[in-house]
Amino acid sequence: MTLDFLTADAAAKALFVLYFLAILVGGIMAVAAKSLVKAMLGLIKTLFGVSGMYLLMQAPFVALMQLLIYVGAVSVLIFFAIMLTRGEEEGRPAMGKKILAVLAAAAPAARVGGLLLRHAPMPAGTPVEISLQALGQLLLTDYVLAFEAISLVLFVAMAGAVVLGFERRLSK
């Protein structure tokens, strides 16, 4: 079997559909699964799909960071939260609540989606990859304030988490 029909364009489209399906199936699992561990597995599937989309957009650095930070760190944290709260199963939500939830999700999605379909600009050409060196330069020159601010936010969050964890023992 030859793969001559597989041009770059067709391959990109096929990969996009594949990643979109991963996002869709994973997202539905994350929202609808009864057990939280299964929901978490769905979220991880979605994270991989989004990472693949970053790769398709010529942003390999962001794609790898997505895998490192989200799949490597954030999902492990959430697994800890599930384990430490004994991974409670949840019952079925009431019908009225379900309808309200669908409305709450569909209203902004329909509004933004309608705007997108009517006014999305047409991109010119293919995206170019920005070198890691250029990104690092930007981080230490133009966006140095955001870089320092995020380090401060991370420090405060970690310190806050430690304080919250110790609070009970101090009060005894």
Partner: peptide
């Protein structure tokens, strides 16, 4: 947008 809608739905349902 799909991700946003699914997230909102889950946030209300969970």
């Amino acid at each position: 947008l799909t991700l946003l809608a699914l997230g909102l739905l889950g946030f209300c349902l969970r």
